[in-house]
Computed example of a mutant assay.
Amino acid sequence: MGTEGLPVLESPRKVAPKDARELSKVFFDRLAVMEEGTHEYQYARNTLIEMNMSLVRYAAGRFRAARGDEMEDIVQVGTIGLIKAIDRFDLSREVEFTSFAIPYIVGEIKRFFRDTSWAVHVPRRLQEARVELAKATEELSSRLGRAPSVAELATLMDLSEDEVIEARIASNGYNSASLDAAVGSDGEDDGEALADFIGVEDPALELFEDFHTLAPLLVELDDRSRRILHLRFVEELTQTQIGNELGISQMHVSRLLSRNLERLRKGMLAQA
């Protein structure tokens, strides 16, 4: 045992997810009674972060297709969400930390995508030049059977070579690929394009995201509010039946339901 009776883990990131869930409960239990800012507190907090990095990698992996070469940045942003979840988690709420943390992690990643469509600030004229450069490159590549030179691009685009180079540099601030691009490493056109490999959206995925967004919001409700929601939407009781079980009027049940549903709705919209 190490600091404050906690186990010493040489490589917290190598702890299996199943073991991490159980160990996290131990660390959260001790963290709740430690004085913030102490060495013991920092050890427990940092170990929780390292042990639960698998949650960040899982969430980040869902965005790999969008910006695959920025995975390191996405993981770093997701880690911020993980840290927020650790700092706000309350073990007494009796909710799994995994369910609590995922919405925070995904929320941070989504904000990153929303705020960084371009990885760096690029003047509008260069953003427009990037589009023209892509078109010219595709046209000349098809015509010449090879990658065009800067001089050839400059002639076609009616720009100076320096302007073509500048546009190329600007294009590094944004990543895109045509859905009509042929797939295959041999360069032969077999009639298959990238778009052919894009699957349909699974409705269950949206339900999964909604559930994990809702979980921490439910934790913030009082016990009676959560009980009413459970009776109404899980056990599917009527408002009158709920009132009879809790000893309150049907109108009171209706008001409580409306108030809490509105609170949950606003909370989910705020994280969208």
Score class of each variant (00 low, 15 high):
residue 52 N to H: 14
residue 75 V to A: 06
residue 87 D to M: 04
residue 89 F to G: 00
residue 4 E to R: 14
residue 21 R to E: 15
residue 189 D to V: 14
residue 63 F to K: 05
residue 53 M to I: 15
residue 214 L to W: 01
residue 120 V to N: 04
residue 224 R to P: 01
residue 66 A to G: 11
residue 98 T to Q: 09
residue 38 T to A: 12
residue 70 E to V: 02
residue 144 L to N: 04
residue 99 S to V: 09
residue 232 R to T: 08
residue 143 R to T: 15
residue 91 L to P: 06
residue 183 V to T: 15
residue 149 S to L: 07
residue 251 M to V: 15
residue 243 G to C: 03
residue 97 F to N: 01
residue 271 Q to S: 09
residue 148 P to L: 06
residue 62 R to H: 15
residue 181 A to M: 10
residue 58 Y to A: 12
residue 259 R to V: 15
residue 199 G to Y: 09
residue 225 S to W: 10
residue 86 I to F: 10
residue 131 V to T: 03
residue 45 R to D: 08
residue 230 H to E: 10
residue 67 R to P: 02
residue 148 P to H: 05
residue 254 S to W: 01
residue 16 A to R: 11
residue 237 L to E: 05
residue 104 Y to T: 00
residue 128 E to Y: 12
residue 178 S to Q: 07
residue 253 V to S: 00
residue 15 V to F: 07
residue 51 M to T: 15
residue 196 D to W: 06
residue 47 T to G: 04
residue 55 L to Y: 04
residue 51 M to K: 11
residue 92 S to E: 10
residue 168 R to H: 06
residue 119 A to T: 13
residue 205 L to K: 08
residue 34 M to F: 11
residue 59 A to R: 03
residue 116 T to F: 11
residue 111 R to K: 12
residue 78 G to P: 11
residue 77 V to F: 01
residue 67 R to K: 12
residue 15 V to R: 00
residue 66 A to I: 14
residue 208 F to C: 08
residue 93 R to G: 02
residue 43 Y to L: 10
residue 83 I to S: 03
residue 162 D to H: 06
residue 11 S to Y: 02
residue 94 E to D: 14
residue 200 V to G: 08
residue 220 E to P: 01
residue 52 N to D: 14
residue 148 P to A: 04
residue 33 V to T: 14
residue 115 D to T: 08
residue 156 L to Q: 10
residue 150 V to R: 02
residue 269 L to K: 05
residue 150 V to T: 08
residue 140 L to M: 02
residue 213 T to V: 07
residue 230 H to V: 01
residue 142 S to Q: 07
residue 191 G to D: 10
residue 223 D to V: 05
residue 208 F to T: 07
residue 244 N to H: 02
residue 54 S to L: 00
residue 146 R to A: 07
residue 65 A to Y: 09
residue 75 V to H: 02
residue 84 K to F: 06
residue 108 E to D: 07
residue 182 A to M: 04
residue 26 V to R: 13
residue 68 G to M: 05
residue 197 F to Q: 10
residue 180 D to T: 13
residue 18 K to N: 07
